[in-house]
Amino acid sequence: MPLLTLKIDADTYRGTREGVPNLVRLLSKYQARATFLFSLGYDHTGWALKQVFRPGFFQKVSRTSVVEHYGLKTLMYGVLLPAPDIGKTCAKYMQAVSNAGFECGIHTWDHRVWQDHVRQRDAAWTSQQMQRSFDRFSQIFGRPPKTHGAAGWQMNPYAFEQLEKFGMAYASDGRAMLTEDGALADQTAGPHRLQVNGKTLACIQLPTTLPTLDELLGRSFNGIELTPANIAAHILALTATPRDHVFTLHAELEGQKLAPIFEQLLQGWQEQGYDLVSMEDYFHHIKDQALPTAPLTWAELPGRSGEMIMQPS
């Protein structure tokens, strides 16, 4: 039975309080397992306004209705409203996820700060950010985190080395290259180990192998625009041929306005014969396999602005 790993990024204060509990209920309904990755520090979502000068930003905003999905209040955090401390104010919501039987891990300390700056920062800054996340997670859950999924698929060599210091055996920090319509460009893409600064790291990377909803919504293929009414069918067509996949979803999207689409995907994947699993489940499935190694590589993906960590084809 092929495995489809569900990786859930909780980027914001609102997503953690509202989207996360909704997803726990929906996943439990279908007896699906998943991994929730939490932003554990401040919500500076409003700082995303700086991205207006990045290529593709306006196009993405117009396609995905950012204000509708994230809420005007969230878009003011760090600008006109103080940034809430997610880990301090939402600990009970995170603990409820673990108590419901779902794997939990680190997404980041401050999503906006990490996504915008990590690629240019040094070892000291990187270590400080990651240690704050590690300590806050341990405080909330009473145990150290076992896994990590980078905010915006943004990392640097020091960050990968820090995962080694934390002793993490697996993480999902990057992407697999996709074609324009979201199909895998290389069918051999999947779990691998990274080579960083001439060293092959022990931590196994489980890259996202499917497009996200916000990368597809509003785009057109073969003259057909992808809308909430037909996007699930498009993604299910990408998974029609059985193979292991990792799908990244967001508490702010699939946990709220786009929940009906995600429910269609859950139904469809189960009908296609997939076992819906967590990152931990996937790791245990592949950990004894001979995995390829890959250099640290950056590239862009259709439907998303800016470069991100990419498994080379």
Rank of each mutant, 00 (worst) to 15 (best):
R136P: 01
K146L: 12
R175D: 04
W114K: 00
K165P: 00
R143W: 08
R193I: 02
R132P: 05
A151C: 02
G174E: 11
M177P: 01
Q154G: 07
P145N: 04
A176W: 03
V118P: 06
L178E: 09
Q128V: 07
Q128P: 07
S127N: 07
V113L: 15
K146Q: 15
S138V: 02
Q187N: 14
R121M: 15
W153K: 11
Q129L: 14
W125L: 06
Q128L: 09
Q139H: 13
R119G: 06
Q120I: 13
E161C: 05
M177R: 14
V118E: 03
D135N: 14
H117M: 13
L178Y: 09
E161I: 01
P145V: 07
L194F: 02
V118D: 10
T147L: 12
R193K: 12
A171L: 01
M155N: 12
L178W: 01
W153I: 06
L184M: 14
L194V: 05
F160R: 06
Q128K: 10
R143E: 15
H192W: 03
A159L: 05
W153R: 12
D135Q: 14
E161F: 02
R175Q: 13
F166E: 05
F141M: 08
V196P: 06
F166Y: 13
T179S: 01
P144C: 08
L184W: 10
K146T: 15
L194S: 08
L184Q: 13
L194P: 06
A176L: 00
R132M: 14
F141S: 10
A151P: 02
T147K: 10
P191C: 02
A150R: 10
M168C: 03
D135M: 11
G190R: 05
G149R: 10
S133H: 13
G174I: 02
D181A: 09
A124R: 02
E161R: 10
E161T: 02
D122E: 12
T126N: 09
F160V: 09
A150H: 07
Y170V: 08
D122F: 05
F137T: 03
P145M: 09
L184A: 10
Y158L: 05
V113N: 11
K165L: 11
Q187Y: 13
G167P: 08
Q162M: 11
T126E: 04
A185K: 07
A159E: 03
A169S: 11
G142D: 12
Q129P: 08
L178D: 06
D181T: 02
